Simulated scan of single mutants.
Amino acid sequence: MKIAFSPCPNDTFVFHAWVHGLIPGAPQLDVLYADIDVTNTLAAGTSSGLDVLKISYAALPWVLSEYALLPCGGALGRGCGPLVLTQSGGAASSSQDPSALAGKRVAVPSERSTAYLLFRLWAAQNVPGGVGEIVVMPFHEIMPAVRDGLIDAGLVIHEARFTYPAYGLTLMTDLGSWWEADTGLPIPLGAIVARRSLDLDAIAGYIRTSVEQAWAQPALSKQYVMSHSQELAPEVAQAHIELYVNEFTANLGDSGYAAVTALLSRAAQEGLVPEIDWAKLR
């Protein structure tokens, strides 16, 4: 079975048991490690040959005809949202007033990411006249670009939540905190999808078992996790796992599905994503 997910600690932690053949009856996995912007594109294509993928929830409207959302394995949560960062002392950081972003250049990791949707929804409410140019770049290049003054602000994800102070950057807003205050719902970040032609219940069962084994024996996955996150200190990788692997990873539940529905319906109203057939969501 062909699967694609990121080399980030939360994904390698979640899939360790399945990748290493520790789940009885589960098919062997052929793994493609790729950034979520790559997997979003692959899922929306017609010839990737991938059976299971980790994508952004923001990409779901483009893939639901071929792929089904699985109720486990993904990343939702609280206190784990994207951040808007500015250069300390830069033109956009004279204050933490979002209006400072009006007409400015903002780097984002993808235009089909939950982070981007949250940013656009937040900016529509908080940045009079809107931001200026949106620049798409790999997420690991964003903080250096903000630090060096190449862009005015950056939208960051993943472990940047823990490491941005080392770049001397200023937090303008935590979009997760904004979303939670505005909706009362968790933040839907990364989804696991599988081809509708497959045994979806079985695949969800393998993933849930893999998550449970990772929690039960975390030491088993440590070498695998760190081999794919070589730029991270062990304590940062562990903090990453603890933040993004939670009860929603084992089961989306009603509040998880409500969060996805709220995000995609709001985004569709703003013209950021296509309308979807809600009957295909679960």
Rank of each mutant, 00 (worst) to 15 (best):
I3K: 01
A4P: 13
S6K: 03
P7I: 00
P7T: 07
C8A: 08
D11T: 06
V14T: 15
F15Q: 04
W18E: 14
W18L: 11
L22P: 10
V31M: 04
L32A: 01
Y33P: 12
I36L: 08
T39I: 02
T39E: 06
L42Q: 09
S47A: 14
S48P: 13
V52M: 02
K54N: 09
S56G: 08
S56W: 05
Y57V: 07
A58D: 08
P61E: 07
W62E: 09
W62K: 02
C72E: 10
G73H: 02
G73L: 04
G73W: 01
G73T: 06
G74A: 01
L76Y: 09
G77S: 06
G77I: 10
G79M: 11
G79Y: 13
C80A: 12
V84E: 11
V84R: 01
V84C: 00
T86S: 03
T86F: 06
Q87S: 01
A91M: 14
Q96D: 12
Q96P: 05
D97M: 08
A100S: 15
L101M: 03
L101R: 07
G103M: 08
G103N: 00
K104Y: 10
V106S: 07
S110T: 01
E111N: 04
R112H: 02
R112Q: 05
R112I: 00
S113H: 02
A115R: 03
A115N: 01
Y116H: 14
Y116Q: 03
R120I: 12
L121G: 04
L121A: 06
N126D: 09
E133T: 14
V136L: 00
V136W: 01
M137Q: 14
P138L: 08
P138W: 03
P138T: 04
H140I: 11
H140N: 12
E141D: 15
E141S: 05
E141M: 06
I142G: 03
A145D: 14
V146F: 10
R147W: 08
D148R: 11
G149W: 08
L155A: 06
L155G: 11
V156R: 02
I157C: 01
E159W: 05
R161N: 12
A166T: 14
T170A: 10
M172G: 13
M172R: 10
T173W: 00
G176I: 05
G176Q: 05
S177D: 14
E180N: 09
A181M: 10
P186E: 00
I187A: 03
P188Q: 04
P188G: 06
R195K: 12
R196M: 03
D201H: 10
A202N: 14
A204C: 06
A204R: 04
Y206A: 04
I207C: 06
S210Q: 08
E212P: 06
Q217C: 01
Q217W: 08
H228L: 05
H228P: 13
S229C: 05
Q230I: 13
L232P: 15
E235N: 07
V236P: 13
V236M: 01
Q238D: 13
H240I: 10
H240N: 15
E242A: 11
N246L: 01
E247M: 02
F248V: 11
F248S: 06
T249E: 09
A250M: 01
N251S: 10
D254Q: 10
A259T: 12
A259Q: 07
A262W: 02
L264S: 09
S265E: 15
R266Y: 11
G271F: 07
L272E: 14
P274C: 05
D277H: 11
D277K: 07
K280S: 14
